[in-house]
Design a protein around this nucleic acid. Structure first.
Lengths: 232, 232
DNA sequence: GGATGTCGGCTACCATACAAGTATGCGAGC
DNA sequence: GCTCGCATACTTGTATGGTAGCCGACATCC
């Protein structure tokens, strides 16, 4: 990929979702440009896009900050994701061919392997692949980016919950159940199963907020500049 | 709004959706900057955002073009819109208070007035307000921007269909039916009615393509630069 | 005549300079 | 000691210069 902006965009996006860049921390265009070895322009353009995704908050003449996790945003993202994935799954029932089912089950096996290895990053990627594939089976691959954007908000919180709850086997079991019901051709049951699966993650958010309140923020919150006190 | 970029972004977006900027036509950063009396930077940043929304296609070192209407994009936008609005309506049933219903009915009256006056622009705005309000009643106002982005794709085609079909009274009647079923507290019927309404517009797209093939494009299409041949 | 090389003009991309605005910290004044 | 005002260092916003790459037309060669 020749485009510097896209590279910077993806790198920053990944670092934010993986919580390497902590919610609330300041992002200076100058510092990022120097750190990445590029000029301000592609960095700035990336930050604008990330702002559009809700991953950073840009306050003109004040600063750019990794957005705190807002319960309102989480709820909205959950609504979008649930509505789109469930609708796509309804369309997928009856359209799934043998090839689709074997592909999905292959992803399930890979998820089990990643879980056994304790490879959280790999599991996250496979989870994403699984859900994207599910939408593709329903003929709605083009709508995946919309889900992915909502998912990004949720994943930031999920990064905290996954290692704690140790519920990877449960999640994989739910994935398997969805595939089985899809194969059985039962739309209502499949949708119900998927909805339950999607809400499991969402239900953990409150517990996470109790553990990491500093990563969360109220909805109508002030910028909270808190510039570097003095040290360098 | 002090921000030049946002102004430029909104202006260009409106002109694209209203088809004042025709699908396929070239947009030069330089020309737009000169025309709008600003520098290239805010124009460029706006074009990047519009590219993210799928309203323009940016080909590096080649040019930026108003995106042609792609059937795949239209179908995807329809899916997103339908899934989200219908899911929100399900949640709205039972939550709608008297105040919500009177607000919605007030919008209906305004739509009738706009239709009688033949004020298409006003009708479009009121239609947007109506659907946004419907989602707000369901408690999902925050998800409206996602719908709005999908709607933008659909509206470009709708601009062509509305004057032709003269179906404004029909659309308003469907709006009224949705509100009545919402008031009656019948989720399934309300959702069915809304879905039918949303699909009515979508069904016109094929007819429109027959009339204006030059505005449409295949999905995996080449840039088709077609720079100004010689004139000028 | 047909294929090929070259040149001019255009594009978006990136880098950099300047402008406008804000929070912070110091120091004067009370 | 406390408060207020200003200097300063930072921020993002905007403007502009320079570069690489692509298209199209014309000249050249076979």
């Amino acid at each position: 990929m020749a485009n510097t902006r896209q590279q910077v965009h993806e790198r920053l996006r990944a670092r934010i979702i993986r919580l390497e860049l902590e919610p609330g921390s300041a992002l200076s265009e100058n510092d990022l440009a120097a750190e990445l070895g590029v000029s301000r322009t592609p960095v700035r353009e990336s930050l604008i896009l990330l702002g559009d995704e809700g991953l950073v908050d840009v306050y003109p003449q004040l600063g750019t900050f990794v957005s705190r996790i807002r319960l309102g945003d989480i709820a909205s993202a959950q609504f979008v994701r649930e509505a789109l994935e469930c609708a796509a799954l309804r369309d997928a029932v009856g359209r799934a061919g043998p090839r689709d089912l074997t592909d999905l089950r292959r992803l399930l096996r890979a998820q089990r392997d990643a879980a056994e290895d304790g490879d959280t990053d790999a599991f996250f990627q496979l989870d994403e692949d699984f859900h994207a594939r599910l939408m593709a089976v329903g003929g709605h691959a083009a709508a995946w980016p919309v889900v992915a954007q909502a998912k990004a908000q949720l994943d930031r919180a999920r990064r905290l919950s996954l290692p704690l709850t140790q519920q990877l086997p449960l999640l994989i079991g739910q994935h398997a159940e969805v595939v089985d019901l899809l194969a059985a051709g039962d739309p209502a049951a499949a949708e119900g199963s998927l909805r339950e699966h999607l809400r499991l993650v969402f239900s953990d958010v409150e517990k996470i907020r109790a553990k990491h309140p500093e990563l969360f923020g109220e909805d109508g919150e002030a910028p909270r500049p808190r510039r570097r006190p003095a040290g360098r």
